[in-house]
Lab assay of single mutants.
Amino acid sequence: KRLCLVCGDIASGYHYGVASCEACKAFFKRTIQGNIEYSCPATNECEITKRRRKSCQACRFMKCLKVGMLKEGVRLD
């Protein structure tokens, strides 16, 4: 089984260019469509796991980008 490159949960397929789970796919889409900017309360190096993926949105979004999710893949309509 493929794992989500962002949080390590089971991937539902390839989304925005990267093997990812439904939760991270939806999080990435919401962030881009809403043009949301997050800031990390710590040092921008929070560990993102299935259990902790909700704890820091800034680091989760940075990890989405780091593993290769493409903003261009999100439709803005």
Results as ranks from 00 to 15, higher is better:
Lys1Phe: 02
Lys1Thr: 08
Lys1Glu: 09
Lys1Leu: 02
Lys1Met: 12
Arg2Ser: 08
Arg2Leu: 09
Arg2Lys: 10
Arg2Trp: 06
Arg2Pro: 04
Arg2Cys: 09
Leu3Asp: 14
Leu3Pro: 05
Leu3Lys: 07
Leu3Glu: 11
Leu3Gln: 11
Leu3Val: 11
Leu3Gly: 09
Leu3Ser: 11
Cys4Arg: 01
Cys4Phe: 00
Cys4His: 00
Cys4Ala: 01
Cys4Trp: 00
Cys4Lys: 02
Cys4Thr: 01
Leu5Gln: 10
Leu5Thr: 11
Val6Asn: 01
Val6Thr: 04
Val6Pro: 00
Val6Arg: 02
Cys7Ala: 01
Cys7Phe: 05
Cys7Val: 00
Cys7His: 00
Cys7Lys: 00
Gly8Glu: 12
Gly8Trp: 05
Gly8Tyr: 09
Gly8Leu: 10
Gly8Gln: 14
Gly8Ile: 03
Gly8Lys: 09
Asp9Val: 04
Asp9Phe: 04
Asp9Arg: 04
Asp9Thr: 12
Ile10Asn: 05
Ile10Tyr: 11
Ile10His: 12
Ile10Pro: 13
Ile10Gln: 09
Ile10Met: 10
Ile10Arg: 11
Ala11Pro: 03
Ala11Cys: 08
Ala11His: 02
Ser12Ile: 06
Ser12Pro: 08
Ser12Trp: 07
Gly13His: 01
Gly13Thr: 04
Gly13Ile: 13
Gly13Val: 05
Gly13Lys: 06
Gly13Pro: 05
Tyr14Thr: 09
Tyr14Gln: 09
Tyr14Lys: 13
His15Lys: 05
His15Met: 06
His15Cys: 04
His15Thr: 05
His15Val: 05
His15Tyr: 10
Tyr16Val: 09
Tyr16Phe: 07
Tyr16His: 05
Tyr16Ser: 06
Gly17Asn: 05
Gly17Ser: 07
Gly17Glu: 11
Gly17Thr: 06
Gly17His: 05
Val18Tyr: 02
Val18His: 07
Ala19Ile: 04
Ala19Val: 13
Ala19Ser: 13
Ala19Gly: 03
Ala19Glu: 13
Ala19Cys: 05
Ala19Pro: 10
Ser20His: 08
Ser20Cys: 15
Ser20Glu: 07
Ser20Gln: 12
Ser20Ala: 15
Cys21Ile: 02
Cys21Ser: 03
Cys21Thr: 01
Cys21Tyr: 00
Cys21Trp: 00
Glu22Leu: 07
Glu22Ile: 04
Glu22Trp: 09
Glu22Asp: 15
Glu22Gly: 14
Ala23Asp: 13
Ala23Val: 12
Ala23Ile: 01
Ala23Arg: 14
Ala23Gly: 15
Ala23Thr: 05
Ala23Trp: 15
Cys24Asp: 15
Cys24Gln: 02
Lys25Val: 15
Lys25Gly: 15
Lys25Pro: 15
Lys25Asp: 15
Lys25Ile: 14
Lys25Tyr: 15
Lys25Trp: 15
Lys25Gln: 15
Ala26Val: 14
Ala26Leu: 09
Ala26Tyr: 03
Phe27Asn: 00
Phe27Glu: 03
Phe27Lys: 04
Phe27Ser: 02
Phe28Lys: 02
Phe28Val: 06
Phe28His: 02
Phe28Asn: 00
Phe28Arg: 01
Lys29Asn: 08
Lys29Trp: 10
Lys29Cys: 06
Lys29Leu: 10
Lys29Met: 10
Arg30Gln: 14
Arg30Tyr: 01
Arg30Leu: 04
Arg30Glu: 14
Thr31Ala: 05
Thr31Ile: 06
Thr31Pro: 00
Ile32Trp: 00
Ile32Leu: 05
Ile32Gly: 05
Ile32Ala: 07
Ile32Glu: 08
Ile32Tyr: 00
Ile32Asn: 03
Gln33Glu: 11
Gln33Lys: 07
Gln33Asn: 05
Gln33Cys: 09
Gln33Ile: 02
Gln33Thr: 08
Gln33Ser: 07
Gly34Ala: 14
Gly34Trp: 10
Gly34Glu: 14
Gly34Tyr: 13
Gly34His: 06
Gly34Ser: 12
Gly34Phe: 14
Asn35Phe: 06
Asn35Cys: 09
Asn35Thr: 12
Asn35Val: 09
Asn35Asp: 14
Asn35Pro: 12
Asn35Trp: 06
Asn35Leu: 06
Ile36His: 08
Ile36Thr: 06
Ile36Glu: 11
Ile36Ala: 11
Ile36Gln: 08
Glu37Gly: 09
Glu37Ile: 06
Glu37Tyr: 02
Tyr38Trp: 14
Tyr38Thr: 03
Tyr38Asn: 00
Tyr38Asp: 00
Ser39Ile: 15
Ser39Phe: 15
Ser39Cys: 15
Ser39Ala: 15
Ser39Thr: 15
Ser39His: 14
Ser39Val: 15
Cys40Ala: 00
Cys40Gln: 03
Cys40Val: 02
Cys40Asn: 03
Cys40Asp: 00
Pro41Ser: 09
Pro41Gln: 11
Pro41Leu: 09
Pro41Trp: 07
Pro41Ala: 13
Pro41Thr: 09
Ala42Leu: 10
Ala42Glu: 13
Thr43Gln: 08
Thr43Cys: 02
Asn44Ala: 10
Asn44Lys: 12
Asn44Thr: 07
Asn44Phe: 13
Asn44Glu: 12
Asn44Val: 10
Asn44Ile: 13
Asn44Asp: 14
Glu45Arg: 11
Glu45Gln: 13
Glu45Ala: 08
Glu45His: 09
Glu45Lys: 09
Glu45Gly: 12
Cys46Glu: 03
Cys46Tyr: 03
Cys46His: 06
Cys46Arg: 02
Cys46Trp: 02
Cys46Thr: 01
Cys46Pro: 01
Cys46Ala: 00
Glu47Ser: 07
Glu47His: 05
Glu47Leu: 10
Glu47Arg: 06
Glu47Pro: 09
Glu47Lys: 08
Ile48Ala: 08
Ile48Val: 12
Ile48Cys: 06
Thr49Phe: 07
Thr49His: 04
Lys50Asp: 11
Lys50Thr: 12
Lys50Gln: 14
Lys50Cys: 04
Lys50Ala: 14
Arg51Lys: 12
Arg51Gln: 14
Arg51Asp: 10
Arg51Leu: 10
Arg51Met: 14
Arg52Phe: 11
Arg53Leu: 13
Arg53Ala: 12
Arg53Thr: 13
Arg53Asp: 12
Arg53Trp: 10
Lys54Met: 13
Lys54Asp: 14
Lys54Gly: 14
Lys54Phe: 07
Ser55Leu: 15
Ser55His: 15
Ser55Trp: 15
Cys56Gly: 02
Cys56Val: 03
Cys56Arg: 01
Gln57Phe: 07
Gln57Cys: 08
Gln57Trp: 08
Gln57Tyr: 06
Gln57Met: 07
Ala58Ile: 00
Ala58Pro: 03
Ala58Ser: 06
Ala58Tyr: 05
Ala58Val: 01
Ala58Phe: 05
Ala58Asp: 06
Ala58Leu: 04
Cys59Lys: 04
Cys59Ser: 00
Arg60Ser: 06
Arg60Met: 14
Arg60Leu: 15
Arg60Ala: 11
Arg60Val: 10
Phe61Lys: 07
Phe61Gln: 07
Phe61Leu: 12
Met62Trp: 09
Met62Lys: 14
Lys63Trp: 03
Lys63Val: 04
Lys63Glu: 03
Lys63Ala: 07
Lys63Arg: 09
Lys63Ser: 03
Lys63Pro: 00
Lys63Gly: 03
Lys63Asn: 03
Cys64Ser: 05
Cys64Met: 06
Cys64Ile: 04
Cys64Thr: 02
Leu65Pro: 01
Leu65Thr: 04
Leu65Cys: 11
Lys66Asp: 10
Val67Tyr: 05
Val67Met: 11
Val67Glu: 09
Val67Trp: 02
Gly68Ile: 00
Gly68Cys: 01
Gly68Ser: 00
Gly68Thr: 01
Gly68Val: 00
Met69Val: 02
Met69Gly: 02
Met69Lys: 00
Met69Cys: 00
Met69Gln: 01
Leu70His: 08
Lys71Thr: 09
Lys71Ile: 11
Lys71Asp: 10
Lys71Pro: 08
Glu72Thr: 09
Glu72Val: 04
Glu72Phe: 03
Glu72Asn: 12
Glu72Ala: 10
Glu72His: 05
Gly73Ser: 11
Gly73Ile: 04
Gly73Ala: 13
Gly73Tyr: 03
Val74Glu: 13
Val74Asn: 11
Val74Arg: 08
Val74Tyr: 06
Val74Trp: 10
Val74Ser: 12
Val74Pro: 11
Val74Ile: 11
Val74Lys: 09
Arg75Val: 12
Arg75Tyr: 10
Arg75Ile: 11
Arg75Glu: 13
Arg75Met: 13
Arg75Asn: 10
Leu76Tyr: 12
Leu76Thr: 11
Asp77Pro: 14
Asp77Ser: 11
Asp77Ala: 09
